[in-house]
Design a protein around this nucleic acid. Structure first.
Lengths: 229, 229
DNA sequence: CGCCGAGTTGACCATGTTCAAGGTGGGTGG
DNA sequence: CCACCCACCTTGAACATGGTCAACTCGGCG
């Protein structure tokens, strides 16, 4: 388990980032290819980078879960996305990060130095295509999320969230949540109480079962899909 | 004025899309360079493409205003963005459009055939960089919008909207709205009544002046910025 | 003049928030 | 091994924000 109090770099390979498989879901074999990027560990709730900081690196998540989020001055938080193993995050336009990234669980990331692949200097056509695909999928995801935030009720939001989790889970009927109720609330644009109440409601209606707070069994996928509209 | 009942193609240039200035804010001189793309006119409220349709073209807006939006089965609509002269829209991952585009006002667009620049065949490095920059800015904008939709009150949403409009306007204190209250509501995740009430409220508080429904004068920018939090 | 679509306003209502109290369970130290 | 603790979660009651429904105004146009 990664319990280091600060990120620790392992390998400092340079432009070997250009290796083609970067944006696919393969996680580079770190020992076999120490040159692909620097491996860093972050323990739970640690900040990986913060909104406004210089975007020196971007990251590929090797293990664990990461949230990317924005804050308002008074502390209100909106989580833009949760990232899982294989996901890229922190690759943004401009020189500064436009959102923060924090470790939801202990996690391992591979950091790629962004300056080394100044976009204007990319010679590798495959890489630039992959980055383009990544950016466009990020845009699509954010737009999908806007629809959720702007036009869906609490129960629709929660139902959709559960279905999305189920899709990512190996067992599509049993979901183990990596995040707290507060994380879910900040992702769905709700309060922690509303999330909790909505889950209880779904359990009372026999749509889900909650053996423990982080363990959710989807008993009635059809109803859930109807609710998610 | 463009009043044609269906889009009309003017020129059908092919891969001349690769001309560098595409993603900058210059609008190609249509007569001088008929080969840059096909010019099409859409009259107010006409659909330019619809969610789910094959994404054969992407577009650069020459004049007018366009909204890109998503719909739920029951008709609820979320507008993802308004696009103005010079903006690119409809450039999306995958083969199908993930949102619809509609003309807010009569408008002129330049359509570029997407198949002709199959991403895997882009030979022009500058173009792929520009598309990458476009995609990343689109992602950033969508994420910013998520924060607005998920975590801001009606008055904060409206204040932010007005400031964004002012920024785009030549006269930063007098805004002429191209869109209806319904469009604004669907962009901000509110109802038409709430938008109207909030604007009236702002007028009563001497923050704005509403000489007509589509004409807004920002009298008190400081207060407006405070409200936009 | 009268119609029609867009916008405004009011009264009522519902959804979700706020505030406050209590429960639960995993981890630590005695 | 047990007791305690603390963070996380749940629940309840009161409240507020924004939604719904309906009536009305305004301005442009036939």
């Amino acid at each position: 388990m990664a319990l280091h109090s600060s990120p620790r770099e392992f390998a400092l390979g340079e432009h070997a980032i250009l290796a083609g498989a970067l944006l696919k879901n393969e996680i580079p074999e770190i020992k076999a290819q120490p040159q692909v990027g620097s491996v860093q560990y972050f323990s739970q709730d640690r900040e990986i980078f913060s909104e406004g900081a210089a975007a020196e690196y971007f990251y590929k998540l090797a293990s664990g879960v990461v949230r990317t989020c924005k804050f308002l001055a008074d502390g209100r938080r909106q989580i833009g996305a949760f990232h899982f193993a294989g996901d890229i995050f922190g690759f943004e336009p401009g020189t500064d990060h436009i959102l923060s990234a924090e470790a939801v669980t202990d996690c391992t990331v591979i950091a790629y130095r962004k300056t080394k692949l100044d976009i204007s200097a990319i010679s590798d056509r495959l890489l630039s295509q992959e980055l383009l695909a990544f950016a466009m999928h990020g845009m699509a995801r954010a737009q999908q999320h806007s629809l959720l935030l702007g036009r869906r009720s609490a129960i629709e939001k929660v139902a959709r969230f559960l279905l999305d989790c189920a899709e990512k889970s190996t067992d599509h009927r049993n979901v183990t949540l990596a995040m707290t109720r507060q994380d879910i609330a900040d992702y769905l644009g709700l309060t922690i109480e509303t999330v909790s109440r909505t889950l209880s409601q779904l359990e009372r209606d026999n749509v889900i079962d909650l053996p423990s707070a982080r363990q959710i069994r989807l008993c009635n996928l059809n109803t859930l899909e109807d609710l998610a509209a």
